Amino acid sequence: MNLTVNGKPSTVDGAESLNVTELLSALKVAQAEYVTVELNGEVLEREAFDATTVKDGDAVEFLY
């Protein structure tokens, strides 16, 4: 899956889609429990991480 992460191209191997929690784990995001996630310009509530799917071509920003 090809994404733009914090403005840079990134690839997650072996996945066509992941939820936000899985993406944080796959990318080994440090202190993931404290990060705010913006997906395609929309800031996500932490409670929505498990239910929100990240797909090929999406833009993700991790805000600390």
Rank of each mutant, 00 (worst) to 15 (best):
M1I: 12
M1P: 02
N2H: 13
N2P: 02
L3A: 03
L3P: 01
L3C: 05
T4R: 09
V5P: 02
N6L: 03
G7N: 05
G7A: 04
K8S: 08
K8V: 13
P9G: 05
P9N: 07
S10E: 13
S10A: 15
T11R: 15
T11H: 15
V12M: 07
D13G: 11
D13S: 14
G14Y: 12
A15S: 09
A15Q: 08
S17W: 11
S17L: 09
L18M: 14
L18H: 03
N19I: 04
N19Q: 04
V20I: 13
T21E: 05
T21F: 08
E22Y: 06
E22S: 08
L23H: 00
S25L: 14
S25E: 10
A26N: 05
L27E: 00
L27W: 05
L27C: 08
K28M: 09
V29D: 02
V29E: 03
A30F: 13
Q31M: 14
Q31A: 12
A32K: 10
A32Q: 10
A32V: 12
E33P: 09
E33C: 14
E33G: 09
E33W: 13
Y34R: 10
Y34S: 09
V35M: 09
V37A: 02
V37C: 04
L39S: 02
L39F: 05
L39D: 00
L39I: 08
L39V: 06
N40V: 02
N40Q: 01
G41V: 02
G41H: 05
E42N: 12
V43N: 05
L44Q: 02
E45C: 13
E45M: 12
E45Q: 12
R46Y: 07
R46M: 06
E47G: 10
E47F: 10
A48I: 07
F49S: 03
A51R: 14
A51P: 03
A51S: 14
A51C: 13
T52S: 05
K55Q: 09
K55C: 08
D56N: 11
D56K: 05
G57W: 03
G57T: 04
D58E: 03
A59D: 08
A59L: 10
A59R: 14
A59Q: 13
V60Y: 05
V60W: 03
E61W: 15
F62K: 02
F62E: 01
F62P: 03
F62D: 02
L63W: 15
L63F: 15
Y64L: 08
Y64T: 08
